[in-house]
Nucleic acid binder design. Structure first.
Lengths: 119, 119
DNA sequence: TTGTATATATAATTTTCTTATATATATTTG
DNA sequence: CAAATATATATAAGAAAATTATATATACAA
């Protein structure tokens, strides 16, 4: 299976993604997060459960998230929502990410190179 | 030392950065790469030597880079340049990164403030 | 001569992710 | 009806990639 999916680039962005989505949605459960990410990125980004759940647990442990477990259609769902501290962290993380994006843009644009020839 | 520097976001992008710069510059040495990155990103991104050199060695080992060592002002410099395979890899990596950026943009933009309530 | 800048390198540790596995119910499909 | 797929969470073992610390060496400026 060759993955067109750029997994390695995802490194370091998981927490930011989770916090951002929760900042928008007020409450979400893990599975829902993976589905939203897949949908909204047209399948380019797919989260793995082995990475997601530990991050959710860690964010909870750090006081960024709180949970409420509910049974829906006979299956358990664990809803996560941001605490005030989590909201603050989300803002910081998103701002940091935007700064980082701009910096990467600066590196990826300019320069006579690969396929950047202008006529 | 509080770092405004978003180190964790850098994870997974190092190889792409190195390959992109080498695609533009034809040949560069390690120290030069760190300086260019710092300059071009206004200090937002700073590479550490502990990460950079192992990556350069690995890329060389993989056949993406070749080296020529020269003494300049009494100090040694190890210049790296792309092999044809390295050029191809650089193109793939940059394309992958752009795809990833677009996907992240899709996640980061949506819903200014708190929209998207479901139910 | 002391510190800063230039220049490369590696080892130990930590963080973070992948992969595999486990459990359990609901729904769709052959 | 059985089997496969979708929903839903969880964790352990291992790999990958980075941080941090350390080592070496020369040039230049204060």
């Amino acid at each position: 299976m060759s993955r067109t999916d750029s997994r390695e680039l995802l490194r370091g962005t998981l927490r930011t993604i989770v916090l951002k989505l929760l900042a928008e949605n007020r409450r979400m459960y893990g599975y829902e997060i993976t589905q939203q990410v897949k949908e909204r990125t047209g399948g380019t980004i797919t989260l793995t459960y082995g990475a997601l759940y530990p991050v959710l647990h860690k964010l909870e442990e750090e006081g960024c998230l709180l949970t409420e477990t509910e049974a829906v259609d006979g299956r358990l769902r664990k809803y996560y929502s941001l605490t005030p501290a989590g909201t603050a962290t989300a803002q910081v993380k998103v701002a940091e990410f935007e700064r980082f994006m701009a910096a990467m843009q600066a590196l990826m644009q300019a320069g006579p190179g690969i396929a950047n020839q202008k006529h």
